[in-house]
């Protein structure tokens, strides 16, 4: 049966938007947590740890995000973890985000002048105090704009969850498109919703870039 494109259809797509937002927030928090570890490992004093993290980052930057999701989705059951599509997608996106955020924050950490951490060492601050009180506050400021920029990438990336059947914004548009047979409106509307989320973030990223990039 072909349905009309009514309020119910718009609400279905809107529902998908909330799932997209929830997924993005979970992936960003998870990716941020592991990304911090990746960034610290990437700038650590031990060479083997730096090399290992560099390989980790290279892998995620050199393979398609869709393949990363496929590997988690089909790989977890192989290792005996039978999880829902939600969990699989959240884990996949967390890995992906941790590599990209780790690389962005590594840049931020290394952009803080070396004299700062040397001065902190000279004052007798240990690694944790040095990072927490001296280096990271400045690094966060420097990498704020690219972090918000990556958030836009991540939100757009959540659409790939639709391909493995997870119902978020793109997938709900797909469902509406096939029940109403009005793909132009369905995908147009989904695009508009993504735009409504991503455009302000893109502008914010550009604003932070102007605001924070020149002053160190």
């Amino acid at each position: 049966m072909i349905r009309d494109f009514g309020l119910l259809e718009v609400l279905t797509i809107l529902q998908g938007m909330w799932t997209t937002l929830a997924l993005s927030v979970v992936a960003f928090i998870g990716g941020g947590t592991f990304g911090t570890l990746v960034a610290l490992a990437r700038t650590s004093p031990w060479k083997w740890l730096r090399v290992a993290t560099a390989a980790y980052i290279d892998f995620f930057q050199g393979t398609p995000m869709l393949m990363q999701l496929f590997l988690v989705y089909y790989g977890l059951p192989v290792f005996g973890f039978h999880v829902s599509a939600w969990t699989a997608v959240a884990i996949g996106l967390t890995f992906h985000a941790s590599a990209f955020l780790g690389e962005i924050w590594r840049g931020g950490i290394q952009a803080v002048p070396k004299g700062q951490s040397e001065a902190a060492s000279a004052l007798g601050l240990g690694y944790i105090d040095r990072m927490r009180d001296v280096v990271l506050p400045q690094a966060i400021k420097l990498s704020f704009a690219p972090t918000v920029g990556f958030l836009v990438q991540l939100i757009k990336g959540t659409s790939l969850a639709a391909i493995i059947g997870f119902v978020e914004l793109s997938r709900s548009a797909q469902i509406v498109a096939s029940t109403t047979y009005k793909p132009l409106i369905a995908y147009g509307l989904a695009g508009a919703f993504y735009f409504a989320i991503c455009f302000p973030l893109s502008r914010a990223s550009a604003y932070f870039e102007r605001r924070f990039s020149l002053k160190t």
């Binding site: 757009k156 659409s159 047979y181 369905a186 995908y187 695009g191 991503c198 893109s202």
Partner: peptide
């Protein structure tokens, strides 16, 4: 520029492949 950069590629592909044939 803004429309392409702020919407996912998947939706762009679907729009072109499934959406445009209806017009």
């Amino acid at each position: 520029i803004e429309i392409i950069r702020n919407t996912p590629f998947l939706v762009q592909v679907f729009f072109i492949f499934f959406g445009l044939p209806t017009v």
